[in-house]
Structure formats: C-alpha cells, structure tokens
C-alpha cells in the first residue's frame, strides 16, 4: 500500500470510513486542460450524513465518482477503512463498488428493460456467482421485496421504469443502492429532478436509512436540501471548504 502522508489521517483513531485527500482531477478538452478538483479533501465518519454543497459545474459529481471508485484521481488518495482505493486492482475495485458503495443518481439510471424487482436485485446478481445465487435466491428476493414494500412500491414489482413516476423511479434506485447493505450511500443530487414535495419524501427515506446507521454522502447545489444533513461542506474552486 502506498504510504501517502494523508492516507492515515490524524483523526483516524476516531474512525474515518471514507476519505479523499488532496485529490486532483483534470479533464482534457482538446488542448485545453480543465482542472475540476484541485487538492480537494474530505473525511466521512461512519454513520455520518455529509452534504457537499456547490454550484453547478463545481465538480461535485466528479468528487463523488472518485469516492465511489468509478473514476481515478490524477493525484491524491481516496481511502476506505484505511485502504488506498487507488491501489485496488480492477476486480477489487468492481467489488468495492458492488459491496461497499451504493450509488443514487439524479437521473435514476435504472435499466429500462428490467422491471422494478429485477432492477433492485441487480447488485446481488452482479456480486454473487451462479451457485450462490441458486442457494440464496429466496432470501435475496425477500430482501428486495422487503425494501420495495418499505418504499411503497409493493404493487409495482413487475412494472418497467418507463411506467413509473420520477419519485417512484428514485425510490427504486434507492432500493437498488441499499440492496447489498452498502457501507456508504453516495447520492448525486437525488432530488434534482423532482418537485419539492416528492424530493422531500426521498430525503425522508434517506434520513430514515441514516437514522438506522447508514453513512450518507449527498451532493446538492441547494442549501435547503443540504440543511437536512448532519454536516455541510462547500466545494468552491476545486477545493472543499
């Protein structure tokens, strides 16, 4: 493991679940280099709900993708339980996303050909092999049904995403993110595409999961939404303030 000075932050003793330390991410557009994150750092403690507030285009999604192992930083480190995520092999990284992270996106990102139940089951079917699936299928399906029922989707199991409202789709997306009991929920403007009332119910659901012990990192450009979190950090000029 690469020993970056910040890979074991000073407050590690208090327990930091997920952290980014001095991450830099620059996009190239033709000849122009666009620096999006310039030495951004953030620590997320277990059971915490952190909101990252920033204007549109400030790099919030980019930071979230780095935390979730979807993207690699040009420099700086992302650590999860003290492990250097940047040093993971490709298959370890796939497993990290599958087992430890649950993503929720602004545009729901459900698979249009699968029905609600199948979309919810997806992380489980990706994460385990055929034999384990055959053995544990019943238990796994029960969990998916339980999650969907809790989110008020019990009559929607066989529906396609196209047949659902935006709020319903986002609830399916959250159920999918929770399917595998992740350690961290990474939500990228989860209410960005919803009206205020529907957005509130989504936030209520996240709050409920948070109360049950789930660590949440939520990105938003709306300070009223950010106010629902335990703690708000600002992303300005590529840095977390």
């Amino acid at each position: 493991m690469t020993m970056h000075p910040h890979s074991t932050p000073p407050h590690a003793a208090e327990g930091v679940l997920l952290s980014a330390c001095d991450v830099v991410r620059t996009y190239r557009m033709g000849r122009v280099e666009v620096p999006v994150l310039k030495n951004a750092s953030i620590d997320v403690k277990p059971g915490e709900w952190v909101a990252i507030l920033g204007s549109s285009g400030s790099g919030k999604s980019t930071l979230l993708h780095l935390l979730g192992g979807l993207d690699r930083a040009d420099s700086g480190t992302v650590t999860f339980r003290g492990e250097h995520v940047g040093g993971y092999s490709q298959s370890r990284l796939d497993r990290y996303r599958n087992e430890h992270i649950g993503f929720v996106f602004q545009f729901y990102h459900l698979l249009p050909e699968l029905n609600v139940l199948e979309n919810t089951l997806l992380p489980a079917t990706i994460g385990i092999g055929r034999f384990e699936w055959m053995r544990r299928q019943g238990e796994i399906r029960d969990r998916a049904r339980m999650l969907l029922e809790r989110f008020g989707l019990s009559h929607r199991f066989r529906h396609r995403p196209a047949e659902l409202s935006g709020g319903e789709r986002q609830r399916v997306a959250i159920a999918r993110a929770l399917m595998h009991n992740p350690d961290v929920l990474l939500a990228d403007e989860p209410t960005g595409n919803l009206d205020a009332k529907t957005g509130d119910t989504i936030l209520d659901m996240i709050a409920e999961q948070h109360r049950a012990g789930l660590t949440v990192v939520m990105v938003t450009h709306d300070q009223w939404i950010a106010a629902r979190a335990d703690r708000t950090v600002h992303l300005v000029d590529g840095r977390v303030a």
Partner: peptide, 16 residues
C-alpha cells in the same frame, strides 16, 4: 452505452 455505465457503477466487471 448508458446501461453499461450503470452496470459498471454497481460493480459489473468489464468482462461481464
């Protein structure tokens, strides 16, 4: 393409 991005985000491997 977008489905592929979604699958990768929830842990599908490139080979998958």
């Amino acid at each position: 393409t977008r489905d592929i991005g979604i699958l990768r985000a929830i842990g599908a491997s490139r080979m998958g």
